[in-house]
């Protein structure tokens, strides 16, 4: 990659103020460091990864509204926290975590302390955890 060809594609995704270091060659073929504000290809795949997260969160939200999943399922999807990770953080079996995710009644019946711990793990406050919108 030539130094003067390092892409400088602007995007809202990275926030504009952010640059990444790229290695490129100058006119004599010597390697130089060039700051790049972004590249379309890179931005496309990054936004795509976030679109996927948002899409999954949207699907989870619908399930919550339909009364099929608990609000925990929505928030953990939003935080990209899968069952395995939740079970590790909570120090709980995967089966139990699954019950809390996919059985709203079971989640609602949990003691306040357990809900609090879930909120702590997801880095949100308890009130937020109990809502989904």
């Amino acid at each position: 990659m030539k130094a003067n060809e390092v892409p400088q594609d602007d995007s809202g995704v990275i926030g504009g103020k952010f640059t990444g270091l790229k290695y490129a060659t100058d006119e004599n073929g010597n390697y130089v460091e060039v700051q790049s504000i972004g590249w379309d290809a890179e931005i496309t795949v990054l936004s795509q990864a976030w679109d996927e997260v948002n899409e999954q969160a949207k699907e989870a939200l619908e399930k919550v509204k339909a009364g099929q999943w608990s609000t925990l399922a929505y928030h953990s999807t939003k935080c990209m926290m899968n069952e395995a990770m939740l079970s590790e953080y909570m120090d709980m079996s995967k089966a139990k975590v699954k019950e809390h995710l996919y059985n709203p009644a079971a989640f609602a019946a949990l003691p306040a302390a357990t809900k609090e711990k879930y909120a702590e793990v997801l880095n949100i406050d308890l009130n937020e955890l109990l809502r989904a919108e």
């Binding site: 990659m1 990444g20 290695y23 390697y31 496309t44 795949v45 990864a49």
Partner: peptide, 30 residues
């Protein structure tokens, strides 16, 4: 598309210097 996108993401993510560290390695060899 998600699988393919992830390959590219790992390749071009910040810290790789572009082309999945290949340019950094070429700079080292130089």
């Amino acid at each position: 598309i998600l699988f393919l996108g992830n390959i590219v993401r790992m390749q071009e993510e910040i810290g790789t210097g572009g082309a999945g560290f290949r340019f950094i390695y070429a700079a080292f060899l130089q």
